[in-house]
Structures are given as C-alpha cells and as structure tokens.
Amino acid sequence: MAKTLQYERPNEEPSFPYLRQKAHQLRRNMLEQAAGKGQGYLGQGLGVAEFLSALYYHEMKFDPAQPAAADRDRFYLSTGHYSIALWAVLADLGIIAHEELKTYGADESPLEMSTIAGRVPGVEMTGGSLGHGLGIAAGAALGLRLKKNPARVFCEISDGELQEGSTWEAATAAVAFRLDNLIAFVDCNGIQADGPLVVPIEPVADKWRAFGWAVTEIDGNAIEQVVGAMHWARAENGVPKMIVMRTLPGKGISRLTQREKAHFVRVDDDEWDTLRRELEEEYNV
C-alpha cells in the first residue's frame, strides 16, 4: 500500500511491534484516566489508539521537548471530547506528568473533558464545539505555506461532524486553496450523542472525492493500514488528503466494544479491574 518514501521523516522505517505497543500504552493511559469515574469518552479514545500511535510515534515531526516549535507538524483534534486520548499521548511523551492522568475531568485539572487551547502544551485548538477543526486546520495549512514553513497539518474529525455544514465549507476552501500540506482523518466510529448515527452519512469517501479531495479508506485499527495511509498522504500533488478511518469504539476491550454503541460509556464501580485485566489479556493474545 505504501508508496515509495520520498521524504525524510523522524522514523522512516515503521516498526509495527513498537507502534502496536505504543497504542497499547495509550489505551492503558486512557483507562487510568477513566477508572473510577463511572463514565467518559473512553470508547472513542480507545478506538483511535492506533491512529494516534502512528501519528505521534511515526509520522509527525514533533519534538515533545519543544511542543511549540515553529517547524513542528500540527495536529488539530477537532473532536475535543476525545481529549482523553490526547492526554494519553501527552502523558506518554512526558509533556504532562503521568500522575496527572487520574485528575482527568476533576475540578481545576488541566486535563479537561474537552481540549482547551493554551492550557496544556501540545493542544493546538479548543475543541468540543464540533465542526471547527477542519477550517482551523485549513487556515493553519494556508498560513504555514505563506510563511514558507514546510510543516504539515494533521486534523482529526469524526463521522458525526460531517453533519455540521461548516465541515463542508472548510472542505471547499481547502481544495480551492490547494492545501496539499493538510492531511485529515475522519474517524468513522458510527456513534454520536444520541446513539448510532442518527442520519445517514454514507458514502463518506465518495463525498470527499466529490469535493475534490484525494481520498483513501482504511481500517483505522489496523496499524499497517494507518501507517500506509500516512505515507500515501505525503504526496505533494496540490490537493488536500482525506483518510477515511473505520474504527471500533472501545477497541482493545471486547466487553466495551460489545456494549450498546454508546457515545458516553458508563462503567460500574466494580468493573474497572476487569477492564484492566481484559485489556492486558487481549493485547497478549
């Protein structure tokens, strides 16, 4: 799947065992945040562990020691409520202290239920009001190009966000401005606040193609496919890239994936140890 690599990247040769192990560590970090709280956006977070592993530990030019470096690649997490997944990454990278993870969602904790720009290094945007991320990412990609800055812009949006009209305004602008330094991912996990997607949104890939984007479609929980799509997206061909990523909410813990498709997972107090055990067992299979 991956095309010939033409550009120097921090980890040019992907080590899939390493990336799998990182995805697993991110899941552990997410469980640590959610444990004991009874509820949270755990399902969505678990579903994008492979994506974030490939992004932060392979594809993105990002130095955790300098999270605001001018030449860093940017990652815009449009779905701010996936913050649990971003905190998992930032803790693993040492940008936030590992002990802080358990404060997720607590009063005065910087690890809020939704991302707020400026509060935690490594957070590029205030997410949570859906339909903002792609437009901001497009503007950043345009601005970087005007600055002659070779950094790239990665942006995650969700299938639910495709219901927001602003997403399509941004889609149009990104093509008009020929932003080939913009690489977006739509996380198709099939759930939204009211449950399984409440209005039909397929065919997702065809919609992006019709808007003029270069599109590829992958299993977002298959690390080789995620890395392959990221390599594919390196092409400097004058068009923005969209990677349609099918993910399984709760991935890594079968008990959660089998639960009713829930936007906001609820877990009983005595269930957390079981979840932890199952996460380790399933990883070791």
């Binding site: 901001i136 503007g139 950043a140 601005g143 941004a170």
Partner: peptide, 24 residues
C-alpha cells in the same frame, strides 16, 4: 495575501483562526 472562501462565513472565520495560529 488575498483569499476568497466563497459564501461560507464559518470557513471565513475558522480559516482566519488557523492563519493566526501559523503567525499571520
């Protein structure tokens, strides 16, 4: 230094925010 997003005020404002993130 001039861009037209078309009749799309939400893109106008979000693209503007992104431009400011990049230092413009």
């Amino acid at each position: 230094h001039y861009y037209n997003v078309g009749m799309a005020e939400q893109a106008l404002v979000t693209v503007a925010a992104g431009l400011s993130h990049a230092g413009m």
